[in-house]
Design a protein around this nucleic acid. Structure first.
Length: 840
RNA sequence: GCGGACGUGGCGGAAUGGUAGACGCAGGGGACUUAAAAUCCCUUGAGCCUUGCUCGUGCGGGUUCGAGUCCCGCCGUCCGCACCA
């Protein structure tokens, strides 16, 4: 064996060997137990980000481990290839989105392959392939036939200068990110998927997802937002009526005004007669459209002069147009109860409206003033006529039943979840397969005319959607009447593409999206791994598509991901200086900075730079490192090892130069350790045998729990134990076991060592080491001896010693006697094999 | 604003309610070397009256023989919010 392990040679050699043997091809037909390991597929931005390396390393370790445990493994990779960055590149650099994307894919694929991931590349797909999106169009039409697709008016962010629809992230302080023009809301007829029809199912289904993080289930539950409440009618002073929805009918006597959204018909009606109201609505429209902006904006209102008659008291309540009322939720109008809702409280304070108390801790506190904020907690109803003294729940039921009895309202379940708008007024996406005919209306493209393929010859130098401007593409004939007609020019949200790719990975016939029998052989995904940022949207949409496809009979799976893991981000220090002229922060990349010991200085001028916070790697802060450079310096195994070390995988991982150097050193240390392997060594080292099998068992558990950082720590311990041991058959066995333990994590090193030790075939096809259960239990344990809960001594005793013996041994300890200092022992707590606590 | 998480040495972190700080990084000391790199060994929470003692898991309370872990109340940081992927 040579002195040093040379990753640059070894990595490539073994990657070739795996490729030649097709080691990682998933075999549909095998009757081994199955494992579908999937990481969220990347957007082909051009370069692999270190976060990808972390994500795919985790999946790779699991996939390789499962294969060692005798499973057939499906571990595929593909590209979430549609989306805005390609169009931005087209506008900025004059390149074609398709060409740009395919070039990026080729680059990133090479980068992934250089990292040695055990992927089945034969199943690679890109969502921008007509083959893929053609099947997607077919599925979309199936959902249309099932009544799950419809069109309705919906507003978008319109940039009047660029003549384009903007995504929320492209709107900055109410202005278009490129043009700087004030963004308008514009109503368009758009395509929607009826996810709300599955709201109950998606909510119920969460309880079965035991291997999902609780936090993700909770976030989805809140997102779906089931609420039981009362919808009822206020008669208005102008002869009209307004329907409001409230989740707190128990507080109805605390209502002091009524508020409607700016888009509400009542508000629109008032605006027709009042220029001031019109102006107010305009102000609301100018504000941001996102929920966060709406809800953090200062509460603003406009008194319409209309009043609403309270159904119980007959009081006249003022009706306001308010910027914090959402048109999309409930009825777009609310009864405002300032005492018990914080938003209403702020509004009432601002406009000097009454803030009555109708819930109190007890009846004696019926007149207690509010401490500067609303009280939304539980309590007893006060100041509410017939509701006085009732609990919140009793009062809710009572009010609903009276409203229903009186015919002016009824109990209603309302969901926060809204239908999914999938229309995008963009080129680089899946064309929505419909045709608009003047005579026949909106007509689906017949299946035999799919796919509807994007035109290649498009121009991004003029504003607007290239599909709309294209000279011929949209002109076609109506499938029904044969007359001249136009194609739909909207494309699908890219979340649609990622809502079924895991099915296509499992089965990819040419003539259909997938084959249900093959799907049944792989799905559900055993382990799905990706970023927490997808906790709600992507994961909810994918769950919805799976259920929708099951409903139309295409598959027999309801939940796509049996187990979900959300990994943390990779972070890095920032290096910065403040520009004294304008106070702006200038960032420097790690490559520009000399970072030794406590301080950091700029290589260029030798002057210090400030070490900023450790934050998510981003181009704007320049705190990024390039995986390629790391691989070129340290090899694939070192970067993989870094990704698994130290930080728990669900938490952020701070990148550091020192850390990767340490990983590089450990690769070499293991190599030297493998060099000590001696098949002919004899002699037994019982303690090492024990350590070996305990480590093998623990690492297996850790990998299955994705606790890679713990597995790494145990591997370090075993390495130290082997290094300290004298040559023996036990030591050689431990070295061999060590090699197999690290094989999923550092596969190139493992192959190289395996070959050097004279192992059969490839480690990639080897089995996980067996353990002797008898070796897993220690025969001695260390017992903590406490006096009054404080540690005073430890004793090493035979495992399983009786309570009485332990107590006697504890009392016999000098240290214990000194700590007791003659005090009488009143109580003794003995936990066998753990501790003795003497309470004086 | 609403929803979700997180908080332990200089740093990343470990710890079924039972010995806080495993393991790694960084630091200090030493060996080897003409020297360096590499490697190996020792050491490293703070304080003190140093055979040992006291304090110590964001802050303040509580439950318990015993709390990093459970409960209540704060503070701080981060993530998501429906057209970014």
């Amino acid at each position: 064996m040579s002195e040093r392990f040379d990753p640059q040679q070894a990595d490539i050699r073994w990657q070739r060997a795996w490729d030649e043997r097709q080691c990682f091809r998933a075999d549909d037909a095998s009757d081994k137990p199955r494992s579908y390991v999937l990481e969220m597929f990347p957007y082909p931005s051009g370069r692999i980000h270190i976060g990808h390396v972390r994500n795919y390393t985790m999946g790779d370790v699991l996939a390789r481990y499962k294969r060692m445990r005798g499973h057939k493994v499906l571990h595929p990779m593909g590209w979430d290839a549609f989306g805005m960055p390609a169009e931005n590149a087209a506008m900025e650099k004059g390149v074609h989105p398709g060409g740009w994307t395919r070039e990026n894919i080729a680059n990133m694929k090479a980068q992934l392959q250089r990292l040695g991931f055990a992927l089945d590349w034969s199943r690679e797909l890109a969502t921008c392939d007509p083959e893929y999106y053609g099947h997607e169009q077919a599925l979309f039409l199936k959902l249309y036939e099932a009544g799950l697709v419809y069109r309705k008016e919906s507003s978008v962010n319109w940039d009047p200068v660029d003549e384009t629809v903007l995504a929320n992230e492209q709107v900055i302080d109410g202005r278009g990110w490129r043009s700087g023009a004030l963004v308008e809301k514009r109503k368009l007829s758009q395509w929607f998927l009826k996810i709300t029809e599955f709201a109950d199912e998606l909510l119920e289904g969460l309880s079965g997802l035991e291997n999902w993080p609780d936090k993700v289930r909770l976030m989805q539950e809140n997102w779906i937002g089931k609420s039981q409440g009362l919808q009822f009618r206020f008669d208005l002073s102008n002869g009209e009526a307004v329907e409001v929805y409230t989740t707190r009918p128990d507080t109805i006597f605390g209502a002091s005004f009524v508020a409607v959204a700016a888009e509400h018909p009542i508000a629109q009606g008032v605006a027709e007669r009042s220029p001031e109201a019109q102006a107010f609505i305009e102000t609301c429209r100018a504000g941001g459209t996102t929920a966060a902006e709406l809800e953090t904006a200062a509460k603003l209102g406009f008194d319409t002069g209309i009043t609403a008659r309270h159904p119980f008291t007959g009081a006249d309540l003022p009706v306001y147009i308010a910027n914090f009322v959402l048109m999309d939720y409930g009825t777009g109008a609310i009864m405002a109860v300032p005492g018990h809702d914080q938003r209403d409280f702020e509004f009432a304070t601002k406009y000097a409206l009454p803030i009555p108390r109708v819930v109190a801790a007890n009846a004696d506190e019926a007149c207690k003033p509010f401490a500067g904020e609303a009280e939304s907690g539980d309590g007893v109803i006060v100041n509410s006529d017939f509701l006085d003294g009732k609990s919140v729940d009793e009062a809710k039921a009572e009010v609903i039943s009276r409203a229903e009895g009186g015919g002016w309202g009824q109990g209603r379940t309302v969901w926060r979840l809204r239908d999914w708008g999938v229309s995008r007024q963009r080129y680089w996406g899946t064309p929505i397969p419909f045709i608009h005919c003047a005579d026949c209306g909106v007509v689906p493209v017949p299946e035999d005319r799919l796919p509807v393929v994007l035109p290649e010859d498009v121009d991004f130098q003029t504003p607007g959607n290239p599909l709309v401007r294209h000279p011929v593409w949209k002109h076609t004939d109506c499938p029904k009447c044969g007359g001249a007609a136009e194609r739909e020019t909207d494309t699908l949200d890219t979340f649609v593409d990622s809502s079924w790719y895991f099915l296509r990975f499992a089965s990819q016939p040419a003539d259909r999206p997938f084959d249900p029998d093959t799907i049944a052989k792989w799905l559900p995904v055993e382990q799905y791994i990706g970023g927490i940022e997808h906790a709600i949207l992507h994961l909810l949409y994918a769950r919805f598509w799976t259920r929708a496809l099951a409903r139309v009979g295409l598959i027999d799976v309801k939940e796509p991901f049996a187990s979900l893991f959300t990994q943390g981000m990779v972070t890095h220090e920032t290096y910065e200086r403040r520009n004294p002229q304008n106070g702006q922060t200038i960032y420097f990349s790690p490559g520009e900075v000399d970072r030794s010991g406590e301080a950091a200085s700029l290589k260029d001028d030798g002057q210090p730079v400030e070490i900023g916070r450790v934050v998510k790697m981003s181009k704007s802060k320049k705190n990024v490192v390039d995986p390629d450079e790391i691989v070129a310096t340290y090899g694939a195994d070192a970067i993989r090892w870094f990704m698994l070390s130290d930080s728990p995988p669900e938490r952020d991982l701070p990148w550091s130069e020192a850390g990767i150097e340490g990983c590089g050193r450990f690769v070499q240390r293991l190599w030297r350790l493998f060099a000590r392997y001696d098949a002919s060594a004899s002699g037994e080292d019982k303690a090492l045998d024990r350590k070996r099998d305990q480590t093998v068992a623990a690492v297996a558990e850790d990998i299955e729990a994705l606790s890679f950082n713990k597995a790494v720590a145990r591997i370090y311990e075993l390495a130290s134990a082997i290094e300290k041991a004298e040559p023996s058959a036990s030591r050689s066995a431990a070295i061999r076991a060590m090699l197999l333990l690290v094989a999923p994590m550092m596969p190139h090193l493992a192959e190289e060592g395996w070959a050097a030790m004279g192992g059969e075939g490839l480690v990639a096809e080897a089995a996980w080491p067996e353990v002797d259960p008898a070796l897993l239990v220690d025969d001695e344990v260390t017992i903590a001896i406490q006096v009054k809960g404080k540690l005073r001594d430890t004793l090493t005793v035979a495992k399983g010693m009786s309570k009485d013996e332990l107590e006697a041994l504890a009392l016999a300890s000098d240290k214990v006697q000194r700590a007791l200092d003659g005090a009488e022992v009143r109580k003794v707590i003995v936990v066998p094999d753990r501790l003795v606590n003497l309470v004086a």
